[in-house]
Design a protein around this nucleic acid. Sequence first.
DNA 1: CCGATCTCTATTGTCAACAGTTTACATCTT
DNA 2: AAGATGTAAACTGTTGACAATAGAGATCGG
Lengths: 251, 251
Amino acid sequence: MSQLLSGRVRAQSLVDVVTQRLEEAIMSGEFAPGSRLSEHALATSLGVSRGPLREAIRRLEGRKLVERTPNIGVHIAVLSLKDLADLLIVREALEGMACRLAAERMTDEELSGLDQLLEEHGEQESVRAGTGYYQEGRDFDFHFRIVKASGNAQLIQMLTGDLYDLLRVYRYKSSTLDGRAAKAFQEHKAVVAALKSRDPDKAEAAMRLHVRNARMHVATRMVTEEPVIPAPKRQGARAETPPSKQRIVRL
Amino acid sequence: MSQLLSGRVRAQSLVDVVTQRLEEAIMSGEFAPGSRLSEHALATSLGVSRGPLREAIRRLEGRKLVERTPNIGVHIAVLSLKDLADLLIVREALEGMACRLAAERMTDEELSGLDQLLEEHGEQESVRAGTGYYQEGRDFDFHFRIVKASGNAQLIQMLTGDLYDLLRVYRYKSSTLDGRAAKAFQEHKAVVAALKSRDPDKAEAAMRLHVRNARMHVATRMVTEEPVIPAPKRQGARAETPPSKQRIVRL
DNA sequence: CCGATCTCTATTGTCAACAGTTTACATCTT
DNA sequence: AAGATGTAAACTGTTGACAATAGAGATCGG
């Protein structure tokens, strides 16, 4: 029997499809944080009835991506800068642990893959100059690989399945601007060096330092610009415009 | 105006009530891991229609407490011993971080509260003898307080709102039996001592050691008893009996 | 002109019926 | 008798209709 026809196929319910679409819309920023979702408008827009749509929303509710107020409606999750800082602390703990585990379990192939990735990073002049930031997703890819290499399914799920999503809602780019790019690049190299040495303590420390430094950048901004989000008006089709202008946080 | 009448009250939708009921049923072990839920039977049993019930289930799905297979049904989450060990590693990372934060932020009142809690623990002869285990929820209370004292909303949510739930599904009691009670008690005292010293590094290290020791107990069992859960038959009213006998893990 | 109350409309919450799929069982074939 | 095939029952997926609620604007009284 052909390889292509081996695995069992399963129907994808409308809820699954709708969930994915909503996820994408939230991640991409099409639905801004704080904006309200109209069930009727969204359902017709997606071409499904309200039932599956509501179920999809409930699933996102369980993942804290949206919040429902009874008889009022659902709003895309809003993260305060305090929330963002808190999330980055969680990230520090989890990625530190992931890096520790990776130091023990990572294969030599995966390690050389990281090396190559860093080499490509280094060739970007923007990084060398210290002015620009990593190409979209490059820094993410670096972290992603290490987390995956931890071999801890729960850790992988929590980071790549939940936490990264939440950070993305906030348009959070993890290492950029302000001359941090060059520094972040050095930190990445330190992480890889620690991984190569197979020293769990060093690996965890290096990764935590890296994430912590990124967090510090947020901390310095917290005093200046805590956003005040006015309660959005009702009405409005599809998804409303953001209550305040889209916040882009880089660091 | 009275204090009791200040906060705004919100209607609790059927979905909210049903979600809570399901949660309790799963936590209490009334629905064993791996057992299937019949929508029709459950709905009539709860006195609601399938709509709200399905939405409640979707929410639990987002929290990974249940798993749905299209056109087949939903099953209570099943955690392998590998999953349990992985979860405890995550817990080590998160509670370690929580303890670090608590060392800096905990008030003196909270600290003396911990002292008192430990004193009560010490008076239990079962602990002193090293044979019994902590009274139900006592060890949990200890960890709970420290996590709360971290002041990190995300950390609190992930631990007390998600991770502890998952562990409870597994009937996981965190420090018991096998003479570990006395040792766990000593470890608790070390944690409090570190908190009192206001030394973040020490506090994190003490908590991580404590959680890690608990994890080691699980690790020793992993080789012997990975459960084989046979695919449960269809049919059956309400909730089916567990596919294999209820697993009680203590350590 | 201001405030309280009422009414109406848009929106969410809930339900019951219908459609599609899966699984078990009976039947037929070899 | 063993395997394949058809059939029916039970279940999940989806829908559209109906009930209940909240918020905005109109109306009335001071």
